[in-house]
């Protein structure tokens, strides 16, 4: 009997992959570790371990308010992003639109545009809008949601167009042939087929919105801060492990959301 020895190339590849993974996970590992340190000023080695920072984070009023605002904004922006992005994807994939590729690129833009640039641009736009219309746009929750919708849309367009491209349109014709009008056809046949793309887009859009710091910095109003900003503000005063604990809670929540989603649609297949 012979056992094939793994080739040198294979070993090198696995080592490189392992190293990259470690590099990605390292900050996460440190944050997790830090969250359980007993002492206030992070230093190595830890003096001991404690869970007190978790209760500190959970009882910190700015964090709680920030979390609730981020949640509201994230959910609203995700829903709006889907409402705009799904029809846009349908139009881009299914109709020959003048300048279609250009629109496609434009819709993906916010994903590659630096957050600071985006924030500045929206900030200026909102000021101009407020001056022109007299409406209280600046620092309002509506203004924040509108901006966050912008970073959700690229995810929706990217993932939904991808699932539409491989979609066999004759099943829509079959539905119509069996007596379904356009709306019923969309609801009963098209939507179920692109649902994985939509769910994944909603999840990634929400996470992007929830974690957004740079753009939000320009747009929040007094007494209305999102969680990342609340954390940043806290860090200006203190560097105790409360922040690490808050981050860990956030990471766990997102991980749970991903795992639950993955049970229904295989994320690795659509992203």
């Amino acid at each position: 009997m012979t056992t094939t020895r793994p080739s040198l190339g294979r070993i090198a590849l696995n080592a490189a992959a392992g190293l990259s993974l470690l590099y990605i996970l390292l900050p996460l590992i440190f944050v997790t570790w830090l969250a359980f340190f007993r002492q206030e000023i992070p230093s190595f080695p830890p003096e001991g371990y404690s869970l007190k920072w978790f209760s500190a984070a959970a009882n910190n009023q700015p964090f709680i308010n920030g979390f609730l605002l981020s949640l509201q904004v994230g959910v609203a922006a995700t829903l709006l992003g889907l409402l705009v992005g799904v029809p846009a994807s349908l139009a881009l994939v299914r109709h020959r639109i003048v300048l279609g590729p250009l629109f496609n690129t434009l819709l993906l833009m916010p994903l590659v545009m630096p957050g600071i640039v985006l924030g500045t641009a929206i900030y200026v736009f909102q000021i101009e809008t407020e001056i022109a219309t007299g409406l209280p746009v600046m620092g309002s929750q509506g203004g924040l949601i509108a901006a966050h919708t912008l970073v959700v849309i690229p995810w929706v367009v990217r993932l939904v167009t991808a699932s539409l491209v491989g979609f066999d349109r004759t099943i829509e014709e079959a539905a119509q042939n069996l007596g379904a009008g356009p709306f019923t056809t969309f609801r009963r046949v098209t939507l179920p087929s692109i649902r994985p793309g939509i769910v994944a887009a909603g999840l990634f859009g929400f996470v992007t919105s929830f974690g957004n710091l740079e753009m939000s910095l320009f747009l929040v109003g007094p007494g209305r801060t999102t969680l990342p900003i609340a954390i940043l503000q806290y860090l200006e005063w203190k560097i105790d492990p409360t922040v690490a604990a808050a981050s860990l809670i956030q990471i766990v929540l997102i991980a749970v959301a991903m795992i639950v989603t993955d049970r229904y649609v295989k994320l690795s297949r659509v992203v």
Binding site: D168, T170, I171, E173, A174, A175, Q176, N177, L178, G179, A180, G181, V189, P192, S193
Partner: peptide, 20 residues
């Protein structure tokens, strides 16, 4: 008339069954 009002049963070459 649109397809959904014609009452023609069409069998597609690719069958076009609803996969879900």
């Amino acid at each position: 008339l649109p397809p959904w009002k014609r009452n023609c049963g069409l069998v597609f070459q690719s069958y076009a069954l609803f996969p879900h």
